[in-house]
Design a binder for these strands. Structure first.
Length: 266
DNA sequence: ACGTAGTCCTGACGGC
DNA sequence: TGCCGTCAGGACTACG
């Protein structure tokens, strides 16, 4: 589930609670977590007895910077969440945990799509331009609008722009008054500029409200995200549009549900 | 290069 | 009540 705003909310929470903490132990009880990555013993070797010196984020990847220079990356998949607790707790679907001198970091993940690994450098991640990062620049983004693919598919492509998922793609396109299936290369310069501006606008607003909870997402204190109250189209099929009173429709695009207003999105 | 479908998982929900 | 199909914040692969 977690898209950029949820991961960023988690990052801020970790920074507040665990910055400078000493990692005593790490245990990954779900083998699947490290698929395609180094094994648990190697992760232990790199992680244990190190301090957490910085918390970062690249798109939907959460990055834990260690005092030995290594970076532990954590992707939360669809249902991954962290909880910070004073003591060890058997929370449902607990897949991993870390013991630090500032408390336990517990990781639960119902569907087990999450992924963990070690990096020497963030450039090793397959990712595109982060909409809240320094290299999110009009000139760079504009160059990507060349394919005939639907603009929503483009927004979801992590190797182009990273961090947008199914909820925010729909919300961004609604705000940009743009149909999700518009071919990317059919957008006028004005439309490209509008989209370029709206992407970080929506994501920043969602960070302000601490993300969106549909069902599973929780921040590190297990609180819900309040951007759910702000959603205009996602999961709103059959409801009137906030702007024009058109009726929100649902279609499939790239195998995923897409919600939009057929009246005000062109 | 593109679109579509299937895969990995678990759980919730609706219909019969 | 119980069974079954569908759907879900993500991402990867394989096919035509």
């Amino acid at each position: 589930m977690p898209e950029l705003p949820e991961v960023e909310t988690i990052r801020l929470g970790l920074e507040e609670r665990l910055l400078g903490a000493l990692i005593k132990t790490i245990d990954l009880r779900d083998q699947k977590l490290t698929r395609g990555q180094v094994d648990l013993l190697t992760i232990r070797k790199f992680v244990e007895n190190n301090y957490l010196v910085k918390f970062g984020r690249c798109g939907k990847y959460l990055l834990l910077f260690l005092s030995n220079g290594k970076i532990l990356f954590w992707h939360l998949g669809m249902t991954g969440k962290f909880k910070i607790s004073e003591k060890y707790e058997e929370i449902p679907h607990l897949r991993a945990y870390m013991e630090t001198d500032k408390g336990y970091l517990l990781y639960s993940d119902i569907r087990r799509f999450g992924k963990v690994g070690i990096l020497d450098n963030t450039s090793e991640l397959r990712k595109g331009i982060d909409p809240l990062g320094d290299d999110y620049l009009y000139e760079r983004i504009n160059k990507l609008f060349t394919s005939s693919k639907a603009v929503k598919i483009f927004l979801l492509d992590q190797e182009k722009i990273s961090g947008i998922g199914n909820i925010y793609a729909d919300e961004i396109l609604w705000k940009a008054r743009m149909l999700p299936n518009r071919p990317t290369n059919s957008l006028s310069p004005d439309e490209v500029k509008r989209l370029f501006d709206i992407v970080p606008e929506v994501l920043k607003e969602a960070v302000k409200y601490r993300g969106t909870t549909i069902s599973d997402y929780r921040d590190i204190n297990f609180n819900r995200g309040e951007y759910s109250e702000k959603l205009k189209v996602y999961k709103m099929e059959g409801k009137p549009c906030n702007e024009c009173q058109g009726i929100i429709k649902k279609i499939k695009l790239g195998g995923r549900s897409s919600y939009y207003c057929p009246d005000c999105q062109k």
